[in-house]
Design a protein around this nucleic acid. Sequence first.
DNA 1: AATGAAAGGATTAAGCC
DNA 2: GGCTTAATCCTTTCATT
Lengths: 196, 196
Amino acid sequence: MRDLDETDMKILSLLAEDARRPFSSIGEEVDLSGPAVSDRVKRLEESDIINGFTIDVNRAQLRAGVPVFIQAEIGSESLEPACKQARESDGVEHVFTTSEGDLWFYARVEAHNVRQWMNGLFDEINIADYTVTLIDAMEWTPSVDGAEFALTCAECNNTVDTEGETTRIDGEVYHFCCPSCLARFEDRYQRLEEGV
Amino acid sequence: MRDLDETDMKILSLLAEDARRPFSSIGEEVDLSGPAVSDRVKRLEESDIINGFTIDVNRAQLRAGVPVFIQAEIGSESLEPACKQARESDGVEHVFTTSEGDLWFYARVEAHNVRQWMNGLFDEINIADYTVTLIDAMEWTPSVDGAEFALTCAECNNTVDTEGETTRIDGEVYHFCCPSCLARFEDRYQRLEEGV
DNA sequence: AATGAAAGGATTAAGCC
DNA sequence: GGCTTAATCCTTTCATT
């Protein structure tokens, strides 16, 4: 795959500002034709760089329960399923996994009893302990600073440039800076699979 | 202003799933014509319920520094400016204010020294203490559960229905369940202004 | 990646309840 | 006020170079 160039960054920024902006109008800003922008956007979607087009909803004006931030300690074998469950649950908006293997998330709870809600949420998952913090305000900044964007190698974290490689493994897209990193990653991945 | 009805909720959900979906196609799902959907979306934008159309970018694949979650204790008089500063800073993506007056945020730090980065970020603001947690993965679910949506009164937090009022004060849109709440809010607001 | 033709969507205006 | 339909204009898509 091609590296993300300046033009791609600019397109990402413009779409982040207004996702419904016509491709032809974006094209005028980046000196490209409408179809050319369309092609690039399609590529960005296929590379899983654009996850999707969405709206920024002012949730503060909408009743959606009590906003809470939950920090849960979870056994490492349950982290993955717990994460999935949180993600798919209504009201959960942001899910973080810390490097220590804890699961943190922001949610809006309609139940009157958070403990009850948590029990229902993580039905068959064992949670050692968790803390609940009430949130007063929450803001999300979709703004995209073009300069901060570049692809990173899934193996070594270096910047991926024109020489890079892209592969899809189990439906997920990964980028690599060089064939060695790709090979190493595939190796690790396979061993992981076999281990399971 | 009209209450947000079931149809508006459905439109919000559909746009959250795909903000570029044609209005006419949305119209088919909610049994409305294209122009009618367009009108409703325009109203949702004018009421500041839709902040904007944007993209969900897979930041994990883009180099944007080390993902961290920072929990900072801040004196109550500095909370507002600190919040603003965080929000406007590059790399800061989610900002939470806890009910205890702490400032929490998720950011991607490019600097090699987080402490240095923090000092630069909050230049003239006094921060009592903060903790930094490394984040492995972060996911955001823009999905909107229609059922959980309703306007809330800015004064009493009750649901705003058809009888509600909407006003713009200093460029911000506020919704109220009744004229009394509007009056009370305006009163409080004015006293606040005069106090400053 | 540009072009041009064809298909499809957005917006406007007129009219209805 | 909010809806629909029809006309117009604009945008996207696709085939071609």
